[in-house]
Design a protein around this nucleic acid. Sequence first.
DNA 1: TGTTTTGCAATGCGATCGCATTGTCAAATG
DNA 2: CATTTGACAATGCGATCGCATTGCAAAACA
Lengths: 204, 204
Amino acid sequence: MPKRVDHEARCAEIAEALLRVVDRQGLEGVSLRSVAAEAGVSMGRVQHYFATKDQMMTHALIYVHRRIYRRVAACLDPRSPRALVRSAIIEMLPLDDERRSEARIAFAFLARSGVDPVFAATLREGYPYHMVFFAQQIRLAQAAGEAHPGLDPEQEAVLLFALTQGLVNPTLIGFHTEETVTQAVDLHLDRIFTAVGPEASTGG
Amino acid sequence: MPKRVDHEARCAEIAEALLRVVDRQGLEGVSLRSVAAEAGVSMGRVQHYFATKDQMMTHALIYVHRRIYRRVAACLDPRSPRALVRSAIIEMLPLDDERRSEARIAFAFLARSGVDPVFAATLREGYPYHMVFFAQQIRLAQAAGEAHPGLDPEQEAVLLFALTQGLVNPTLIGFHTEETVTQAVDLHLDRIFTAVGPEASTGG
DNA sequence: TGTTTTGCAATGCGATCGCATTGTCAAATG
DNA sequence: CATTTGACAATGCGATCGCATTGCAAAACA
């Protein structure tokens, strides 16, 4: 085997450049040339790692999902199930430049999933993860007496995740402020969790 | 003034063709040529009515919003505030081909609003309408003793609309079934409205 | 040392893009 | 009847697109 480079790292560089392009110009701004220029590499290099534009886009979609997942996972507040769920939700909302950027990117791919079966499949596979996470936390809270016992954790997870996703765009385009949107989240969490630790109201 | 045609109707024809293109191929599929071909007219005609592509897109955005608004308004169930709100929500979810089509279209523009200030402004202007509609219905229900009196109608409207929007994509890509999603909606409505008429459970 | 294979860079092709220009035809106006 | 003006159709231009092709340098292997 001849000259060896870190294949995965090179793919990641290209993916990150692509995401920066999407952040600024949407999916329409993505071309082999624009991504190569953004990454500061030649177009040939991009083609070397991704045979087609579609492959490049799909890889970037998976890549950004992992990136969001890691960022959310790193910010989880373990003090209680409620705090855990709340920190995850807040972290998914576009409340600073980094999260706004990722919200723009995620939305671009989300829209594409409506017309692209491959993207739709990728997203469909990602949904259950969020659902079981929320459901599990609600279940834990119920067991600890910190959530209303009559609730169906799966149903509540569906509501919770939908609520979170539905708050993203209004926040992104400036309809909601951080205060407005966190109030909305806390209001809904009050209907699931009984014990409101002070950390859940002040954190965030 | 020479040969006169129905200017608005011609613009609408082009807008509808554009929306069909977006439905199938997303915003990226939109070009002067593709829209003209879809409308069955010449490219010159499209240019005659819209000086630039951006003008054409903006007009289509406003056009589809009006179309959705009219469709929802035509389906409202006036039997009670709850039924009214529920019918509006259900009508906004992609549960048949027509609504799936409009959901795809709306999502495409929604994503674009993240990078296009003009689109963002258009959407921002539309949000308050939904909010006051939901808030007003909740207020009416409270006055009639059909909703929990302690709730803040504005806050509940924010939650309700976010929930609705957040359910769109999972339903669109097939993660939710009609049964799943209507259960989620009804579950949330149960927390706002006290009186559950039989029409609210069977309708929709 | 020569061969092979990876990792690119460079270039070109046909298609398509937004947009400008020009020409034509019909109807209202003088 | 002549002129004007709105409603197009047709064409072309420069830029950009995805993708294929070609070539070459360097490193592992024989």
